[in-house]
Design a protein around this nucleic acid. Structure first.
Lengths: 194, 194
DNA sequence: GCTAGACTATGACGGTCGTTATAGCCAGAG
DNA sequence: CTCTGGCTATAACGACCGTCATAGTCTAGC
């Protein structure tokens, strides 16, 4: 039934994730997302009838899945290889965008609406973080790390990288990432062999 | 020369920092900041003639200085005590606001304008991060940690805590903070005595 | 070829944004 | 008591926001 471009919808989602990772959710308007994806404004409400909230939710999941897929693959070579790839991914994003882009999942996590309910986009962000943590923790456990230690290390890695990316953007430098990477790599390597 | 409330200006800044820490910079309007501080809108432009940008910059510095002051004091009892206090501070903020507030410095760091120049608020955020890093690194060095190691650990602590706070907000749970705290405390304690 | 339905084009709705301008208030200095 | 100047009150500016409605286009299946 789709007519011309079945990828139009995905283009919008991917573009939305990119824009959110740069400017944050609230500063990214639906009009701009549509224009950025070369799609008409009407199409966004055709594909995402629940509006901006739905689009943001799908953008978070899209980015989360992309990273998770990469992480799953690289972790086949062990926790250290997975960590290295994780760090390299974020380094590439930060450097290639001139410190303009970061993580859309983090961006969505820190903008709350006045309401009391959890917006679906924030819930999606929570799931993404948990997925990443679980991938790392499972790999660590499979390589002999005690369960509690594996959980803690996995959370530390995700949190440290997310925070470091934000610091790199503020400072316009990769130095925070260099430092965090050195510490995390030593820590994970030590945990795996110890 | 000030008439009634010399603290009106500071009330606006403190309120702005609080609101930015909850909703992000772009979602926080000047009108709301004024109302939140029980100040008229006109006063905002009287105290901050350069507008929202200036107000955001001062809010970032205000929050940064508050934390730095606390950190400086607690670090007198050593790096572990400082870390513990740092963790406790953010835990308190996250818990007492029902996972609604986070760090305004982080929030400002990840929202970029379309321009190429660095907005002053982002530059202020960079300075705040560096101040926090330096306080921790100095304390570590004073307790026998090698300089490079001290720098790396300091960056890791700041980044990990910032990232963890965001994760706690998304997941509506202090579990990430529990895990990160356990790892960081062990790491810093080991570095100091080793 | 025709028709159903996925998609687009267009325009409007009420609302809020950042910012500015102007006139007025009112405590303290002289 | 007057007057200066820090502060407030009020209104407006153009721009953009999220969302919706409606009419139109064009393709895939019959």
């Amino acid at each position: 039934m789709p007519r011309t471009s079945p990828q139009a919808r995905e283009r919008i989602v991917a573009g939305a994730a990119d824009m959110i990772s740069r400017r944050g959710l609230n500063a990214t308007s639906i009009r701009e997302m549509a224009k950025h994806a070369r799609a008409p404004l009407g199409s966004t409400y055709h594909y995402f009838p629940e509006g901006k909230q739905q689009l943001a939710t799908e953008a978070v999941r899209y980015a989360g899945d992309t990273v998770a897929r990469m992480l799953r693959k690289e972790l086949e070579a062990g926790p250290v290889a997975g960590l290295t790839a994780f760090l390299a991914l974020w380094r590439r994003i930060v450097v290639e965008t001139g410190f303009r882009a970061g993580c859309p999942v983090l961006a969505v996590s820190i903008e709350e609406p006045p309401t009391d309910e959890i917006p679906p986009a924030v819930a999606a962000a929570a799931e993404v973080f948990e997925t990443w943590e679980n991938l790392l923790a499972t790999s660590l456990r499979e390589h002999g790390v005690r369960a509690e230690q594996a959980e803690q290390l996995a959370t530390l890695v995700v949190a440290a990288v997310e925070g470091t990316v934000a610091m790199c953007r503020a400072q316009r430098s990769t130095r925070p990432l260099d430092r965090t990477a050195a510490q995390l790599e030593a820590l994970i390597a030590g945990a795996v062999e110890g």
